[in-house]
């Protein structure tokens, strides 16, 4: 659907060359929600802007729905743009126009007959839950409502691709949730491919199927959301994952343990899918002569698969602890001794 082939983008800023994109190769499949995450300045913005030709790559190819944007004429690019909707961080609505006129704008530009515009706009406003706000001006709306208008506008021409440029970054957490729900609904009901860039890992976890992590103009890691969240490889990806999935012993508990000098056998246990449901910790203490002390726990759902992390202290004789470990191995439970915290 969207394919980046060796895409680079170099800016000249005050005589200094800035490489915003560095040989990007990426493929977004039809019908999926693809997220790109990275710190500011990582090149996410440039990346998404190459998809609808708001920016032109310095080299490489951007292929959207079979069209190579780097070779076709300006007029053709304008046509392709009409099959791509875009939602912006700061909404970018016309303040001088009503909600109705804002949503109608892409249709007016395409010279759609008035009665059809009327029908389509009321349909869209109904869909985004703003059926009663047609004659209101954007300055009378909340941030979330403005973004709903932005989304309705982006969908007006029935695009096959929706680009979301930090679409929830200016919104509070609750509103973010409702906007993400709406995006999910769009993806499901209309089968629209969504490419979104964000610096919020929670957004990625919430709705994306696949994710790419960007740093310094490069895609440094790419995979399904499950893979990246359960086993991030690069430092940056680990940092991003840790913003939403804590796997550290809370400092207060650590202090307490240190005072008691009890930091002996601390393990980091990861459950995936089925194993999340089995009461293996209580089994351990029943079968073996060990006591289990849970220091930290976090169970979440990634793309419908339960995923849990536990930090436990296993108290008991060394031989018993060893037996406990082999039991875990037999149950195919991933564990790792947390050496860093042992004193």
């Amino acid at each position: 659907m969207i394919e980046f082939q060796n895409v680079s983008k170099v800016y000249n800023s005050g005589g200094k060359e800035i490489r915003a994109l560095n040989s990007i190769n990426l493929k977004v499949n039809k019908g999926e929600i693809f997220g790109v995450v990275g710190f500011s300045g990582a090149g996410k913005s440039s990346l998404i802007r190459c998809v609808n030709s708001l920016e032109k790559p310095t080299s490489g190819k951007v292929i959207v729905d079979g069209h190579d944007l780097t070779t076709i004429s300006k007029k053709r690019i304008r046509e392709v743009k009409k099959s791509i909707g875009m939602v912006f961080q700061h909404f970018n609505l016309l303040n001088s126009k009503t909600v109705y006129a804002n949503v109608a704008m892409p249709l007016i530009l395409s010279k759609v007959p008035k009665d059809q515009i009327k029908q389509r706009v009321s349909e869209l406003l109904e869909f985004v839950g703003l059926g009663d706000k047609a004659q209101v001006y954007p300055d009378q709306l909340s941030g979330g409502q403005k973004q709903r208008v932005g989304i309705a506008r982006a969908l007006a021409t029935q695009p096959s691709i929706l680009l979301c440029d930090e679409a929830t970054s200016a919104l509070d957490p609750q509103t973010t949730g409702s906007i993400l729900e709406l995006l999910k609904k769009i993806n499901k009901e209309y089968g629209i491919t969504i490419l979104m860039i964000t610096h919020e890992m929670a957004v990625i976890r919430e709705i994306c199927d696949r994710v790419a992590v960007m740093e310094a103009g490069k895609v440094i890691e790419e995979g399904t959301v499950f893979d990246i969240f359960s086993a991030p490889k690069t430092n940056t990806a680990q940092n991003f994952v840790s913003t939403v999935m804590h796997d550290q012993i809370p400092p207060s508990i650590l202090n307490m343990m240190e005072r008691k000098q009890a930091l002996n056998h601390i393990f980091h246990i990861t459950f995936v899918g089925e194993s999340t449901g089995s009461p293996f910790l209580s089994q351990l203490s029943k079968i073996l002569d060990v006591e289990i002390n849970v220091l930290f726990g976090n169970i979440t759902e990634l793309q419908g698969i339960p995923f849990g992390k536990l930090i436990v202290e296993i108290q008991g004789a060394d031989t018993e602890v060893k037996r406990a470990l082999s039991y875990m191995q037999a149950q195919q439970i991933l564990y790792k001794e947390v050496i860093a915290h042992a004193s």
Partner: peptide, 8 residues
Amino acid sequence: EAADAMGA
């Protein structure tokens, strides 16, 4: 930018 994205 929105105008540009709409293909105006």
